[in-house]
Nucleic acid binder design. Structure first.
Length: 562
RNA sequence: UGGGGCGUCGCCAAAUGGUAAGGCAGCGGCCUUUGGAGCCGCCAUCUGCAGGUUCGAGUCCUGCCGCCCCAACCA
């Protein structure tokens, strides 16, 4: 207590692991696992679990974390998903080495365990239909009733389960159940189903099996087979812990891992449910699982979120048992924190406004040295071309500027970053009164951006040289949903009514300084004063950038307040 | 209304009976060739509520209140 003044306590799971290590509870070992079901893409919520499981293992000498595909339901699972999951975990920065496991690898062993349970009189084949089964289960406040098949002999059960395995019965006609207690207040303990018949090809075992183990039977035993010490899962499995322990106890397994539950991650303005994510994809509300607006790891990767930022986010939010909704701003903070350190600066004009420097010689240009990253001296400098005709950001000019507007206005002098002081001398408008061009003069003595006479300007603008800049497409993203909790809807509505219609804005006439030419997809930049951007894989002859995040905008706040 | 889990600042989250860490957000200020970054300061007399035990309670006890999860042959 007294020595914790400056050392924040570790989370309760790490505390338990540390205690167990100290007491030699698991022989001084730490073995965890990340057990995704390959039925969808990984999202930021999975990242929390990945960081926890791999983190706990790596923090302890000799600790191991396995990647295990929990593939017991051929109806939902595909190898496409195992590939994407492996790719995402690797990208996040974790290495499972040789330890790529599949529950399906244990099918034979699991089936033997089932037989063992039957022989012990702890399991039986039940012929109730799905509807009858539900009716027998009782309700939250009423106990269930025993199945009429509950007292079949061991021999009969053995014969029946074998015939189930051989495919003699139809889907749904019979199941194997644990014989526990139909009156248990814990519904998961009311003779739960252990195996069901499902005649469908499995992505790894093909048609070898037509009976598949349920989660409650397969998971604990897979953990045990692998020698897991701490089986970390989310809160909704708390009710299943008695069953987890029951199976391992009845089977008297050598290894009995400890299940520990923690609260899953929720993010404001986003949804983490795989079902909803799939609907977003299939309903074409987004362009795919890797749409940069998706909370999937592939979406975030494409958007330009660094793996390091996601890890530091996950480490920063902590592990606890209380339900939580992390504000999206917290994630953006981690992204900016990382990108500020690592992203090279570049100048890019999103909404160009033509500027002619009238006293700059026609047909000439010069290269101006510019700092690549003020946070990282080793990033060096680059030369940016300057000439008579430039583009600046439309929003950086106002004919009638309000107070505290530090940018360009008629008669006002500002600095063009790393270039010169310029003064707006004239405004050219089209027939509609729209400003189409600015005429400016520059002060040759301010080359580089400092005035020898010491005069100051309040504003510094980014710019590009019209003849040297490249035209690019920029995709501006905003939150996918308009409300903090997208699943909170009026009766008759669903999450779709909460979709943000302005979550994507495409700008096709952006001008970027030439140093970005040839940048590979995935390359990240900070467009000075605009935000962080990442080269999208859609890039071809013309570059396409995704906006990863805006810069913090204190002017925006001032403006909002009025 | 059976069982389980959880209530500490707007959002996270420490504190394991010794007098409420830290982060994000927010708000002031400094600095600045990004209105970025950085730096400094402010931000819970108080831990869902009410009692009780104790020299001392966020931590222990009792009783309330509130939120979440469980009735897929999903995981």
């Amino acid at each position: 207590m007294s020595n914790s003044e400056n050392t924040p306590g570790k989370d309760f799971i790490r505390a338990i692991v540390a205690e167990d290590l100290a007491s030699q509870k698991h022989g001084g070992r730490v073995v965890t696992r990340f057990p995704p079901e390959p039925n969808g893409y990984l999202h930021i919520g999975h990242a929390k679990s990945i960081c926890l499981n791999f983190g706990v293992a790596s923090e302890n000498t000799g600790g191991i974390c396995y990647l295990r595909f929990d593939d017991t339901n051929p109806a939902a699972e595909e190898s496409e998903f195992v590939e994407s999951i492996k790719n995402d975990v690797r990208w996040l920065g974790f290495d499972w080495g040789e330890s790529e496991h599949y529950t399906s690898s244990y099918f034979a062993q699991l089936y033997e365990y089932a037989l063992q349970l039957i022989r012990a009189g702890k399991s039986y084949v039940c012929d109730l239909s799905s509807e009858e089964h539900t009716a027998h289960r009782g309700s939250l406040s009423e106990p269930g009733r025993n199945s009429p098949f509950r007292d079949r002999s061991v021999e009969e059960n053995l014969e029946l389960v074998e015939r189930m395995r051989k495919g003699e019965f139809e889907n749904g006609s019979r199941v194997l159940r644990a014989k526990i207690d139909m009156a248990s207040p814990v519904i998961a303990m009311r003779d739960p189903i252990l195996y069901r018949i499902h005649k469908a090809p499995h992505h790894r075992t093909g048609s070898e099996w037509c009976v598949y183990p349920m989660y409650d039977f397969a998971h604990c035993l897979s953990d045990s087979i692998e020698g897991i010490t701490h089986s970390l899962c989310t809160l909704e499995f708390t009710d299943h812990r008695p069953l987890y322990d029951w199976v391992l106890d009845e089977l008297a397994t050598e290894c009995h891992p400890q299940q520990i539950e923690f609260a899953r991650l929720n993010l404001s303005y986003t949804v983490m449910s795989k079902r909803v994510l799939r609907q977003l994809v299939e309903g074409e509300h987004v362009t795919g699982w890797d749409d940069p607006r998706m909370p999937t790891l592939s979406g975030m990767r494409r958007r330009g979120y660094p793996a390091e930022a996601i890890r530091s986010f996950c480490d920063g939010i902590g592990i606890a048992k209380r339900d939580n909704i992390i504000q999206l701003e917290r994630l953006e903070f981690s992204v900016r924190e990382d990108l500020n350190r690592t992203a090279p600066r570049v100048m890019g004009v999103l909404r160009p406004l033509r500027v002619v420097i009238e006293n700059y010689p026609e047909g000439e240009s010069e290269m101006l040295p510019s700092v690549n990253n003020p946070e990282d001296a080793s990033a060096g400098t680059r030369d940016v071309p300057f000439s008579r005709v430039l583009y600046i950001e439309r929003g950086d000019f106002l004919e009638d500027p309000p107070k505290k507007f530090f940018r360009l206005a008629p008669g006002r002098e500002v600095r063009l970053r790393y270039a010169y002081f310029v003064t707006c001398t004239d405004v050219v408008k089209d027939a509609n009164g729209e400003v189409v061009e600015l005429r400016c003069s520059y002060d040759p003595a301010t080359r580089g951006g400092d005035a020898p006479d010491g005069r100051k300007v309040k504003g510094t603008l980014h710019w590009v040289s019209a003849e040297h800049a490249v035209t690019a497409e920029v995709r501006l993203y905003d939150r996918l949903f308009r409300v903090e909790d997208p699943l909170d809807v009026d009766p008759g509505e669903d999450f779709r009514s909460n979709l943000n219609p302005d979550s994507l804005e495409v700008l096709t006439d952006c001008r970027i300084e030439p140093s970005v030419v040839g940048a590979e997809p995935g390359t990240r930049y900070q467009f000075e004063r605009n935000g962080y951007f990442c080269v999208d894989p859609d890039s071809g002859d013309t570059l396409v950038f995704d906006r990863t995040a805006t810069l913090r905008d204190s002017w925006g706040k001032v403006k909002k307040r009025g």
